[in-house]
Design a protein around this nucleic acid. Structure first.
Lengths: 223, 223
DNA sequence: CGCATAACCGGCGATACTGCCGGTTTTATG
DNA sequence: CATAAAACCGGCAGTATCGCCGGTTATGCG
């Protein structure tokens, strides 16, 4: 398995179109840059004000861009949302892969399980994941958003599952267990993130997380 | 341990004031009834439209109550929200206790762990829990709501933890494990609920849930 | 029966977000 | 240099939600 190949393949599979080829022209490059800044401001608004806080005015103001320019890049709010959705999924995968392969190179393959759990937990702590969560929850009660979000989530999961099975040949024929371990970790980490409020004590979350890691390790060792 | 006593004590500890004593007067009784209907309509709006869908107009319309009457019961939107928060926490505990003690009586105490997991999973499937989730997420980015939500969540957790330790004498001195099992289940079930969208396949969620149950059972057996 | 109180009604202005438009500046091309 | 095209600007009307108010109906009490 070549780490860089896998990383590139996974990322390119869900890369937003506008990220693909940086144009040579000055104007278009600046335009793409502004667009990117707007999308990232959208992520900020999402994190700070929830889905209903993702307004065209707020995003434009945060970028020091006029509402007219905003309209030029994103004629409607929903088109902005679509760009944010793409960006968030892409960054989510990117963060995990970067962390994972960096740590793997440094600490060695025998700690693979712990490294993967740690990298995923790190990826959950990011701004982008917070934005993902806001979108996920909002999509439960907003049909328009769901129409954008669900296909993206489906594709993300598809790419993730496919490449994961190929990336961990150690699990061999037990790839159902690998998938289960991955699903379990994703579920647990999302729950942990949301229990920051109900569980005032940080140690409680940490204990649950450690137990989750042990469960995944056990799933691997018994194969 | 007397089940009914425990149930009453836990519920009364977080019961909304307006539920306490039903007044004798016709008028006041009808008023309390209308108020209750408004709160429940608030839950519906929350589930169907998220926190930003919880508007005074929407709630009033759903109850076939004028905006004036609405204003009479809840002068501001935030007061309505406060009532909904109280109601949601109360119902969440109520649903769990009802299910748990009913199943315990029917299936016997040796299945306690499985029954508790099942009852909690059931309580997570309810409308009220969906509303709880919306409030929890919205409270992350809305200071006013957080000021209402966090104390309520704190109190809920406090009552839950205290009574749980008393209700399960079997765990004896291993009450840290009991707490860990409870925290783990709460975290996992919330994550599972939210992964309904990303995991298209229902069987995957079910597998993760079953594995969670086994983990809790293991925690109990090894004590 | 009559007055006081509580419950309910519908409309007002203020604010904020959306989508759209005409006009202006900056960059590319012949 | 002139013209086209792309990027950016600021304001307008439409809509929805909010908090608030004066007025109306129903109930409780002497």
């Amino acid at each position: 398995m070549n780490a860089d190949n896998l990383q590139d393949r996974m990322l390119s599979a869900i890369m937003p179109e506008h990220n693909a080829e940086p144009p040579a022209r000055w104007q278009q490059r600046k335009s793409a840059q502004t667009r990117q800044r707007l999308v990232e401001a959208g992520v900020d608004c999402l994190v700070e004000g929830g889905y209903s806080g993702l307004t065209t005015a707020a995003v434009a103001e945060r970028c020091a861009v006029s509402r007219g320019a905003m309209h030029h890049h994103f004629p409607t709010r929903l088109e902005l949302v679509a760009a944010v959705v793409e960006h968030v999924f892409y960054q989510r995968m990117r963060r995990f892969l970067d962390d994972y392969f960096a740590a793997l190179k440094e600490r060695g393959e025998e700690l693979m399980i712990e490294i993967a759990c740690e990298a995923h937990w790190q990826s959950v702590q990011t701004r982008e994941y917070a934005a993902y969560l806001e979108l996920l929850v909002a999509a439960r009660s907003d049909a328009e958003l769901a129409a954008l979000f669900q296909p993206a989530a489906r594709q993300y999961d598809e790419v993730w599952t496919r490449e994961m099975i190929e990336a961990f040949p150690q699990w061999e024929r037990h790839w159902q267990d690998l998938k289960l371990a991955s699903d379990f970790t994703q579920v647990l980490h999302m729950g942990l993130l949301l229990h920051r409020t109900p569980f005032a004590d940080e140690a409680r979350r940490e204990q649950v997380r450690q137990m989750g890691n042990r469960v995944v390790r056990g799933l691997y060792d018994r194969k």
